[in-house]
Amino acid sequence: MPREGFERQLRAIQHEILTLGSMSAVAVERSVTALRRRDAALAETVVENDGPIDTLAYDIEERALLIIATQQPLAGDLRIVASVIAIAGELERIGDYAEGIAKLALLNLDEPPIKPLIDIPRMAELSIDMLRRSLDAFIDRDTLTAHEIWREDDVIDDLQDQVYREILTYMAEDPQKITRGTRLLWVAHNLERIADRVTNICERTIFMVTGERSQYITRTPG
């Protein structure tokens, strides 16, 4: 295939990554809104829309692998296509976490909320912002922004600790709140995992641009 055909294919799958990223970001947004507003219909929408997210992720992966197998790209181009595969995987898992939050939101509808939600929506807001910017950084090959976002993960981790401590206090004071509290702990856990996956996307961008393995920084595993 001539060079321009290859370039077109490359641009197309990167565009698909943005689409997938948008779907995942919306899923996270809606899942936490559903939790906050106790909105069963919205939560159900998130659960239903996880299928299309999975399908698009697999689709992108398949197409990327086909490009590699048929085009045999080298060096920089190969790293781009490989990064697309990795990022599609991260976005698919972010979608899964959003679905998890939506399901927890549905479970917590049986009883009144144990406390007003402040830190959890804050975690969501920050993670979603990190996610959107990380995808821009990927498209723009912007390692500086990628690195900045990577560092912002600490804020999310601190918020998660805060959420845990607070919810455990509520649970200890009133055993009736334990089941609902545990579900909120899971929500916070999922949001922390989402932010962690965003840092993986940032690492990928840095590796893709610099090509250096030494830039690969491991993160706290879940």
Binding site: L65, I68, A69, T70, Q72, P73, L74, L78, V81, A82, A86, R213, Y216, T218, P221
Partner: peptide
């Protein structure tokens, strides 16, 4: 955990190189 991650990265790298080198 880190050596395990590094082996994982190496495997991904090798697999992709393999894909790119032969039909």
């Amino acid at each position: 955990d880190e050596p395990i991650d590094r082996l994982h990265v190496a495997i991904q790298h090798d697999a992709i190189s393999l894909l790119a080198r032969q039909q």
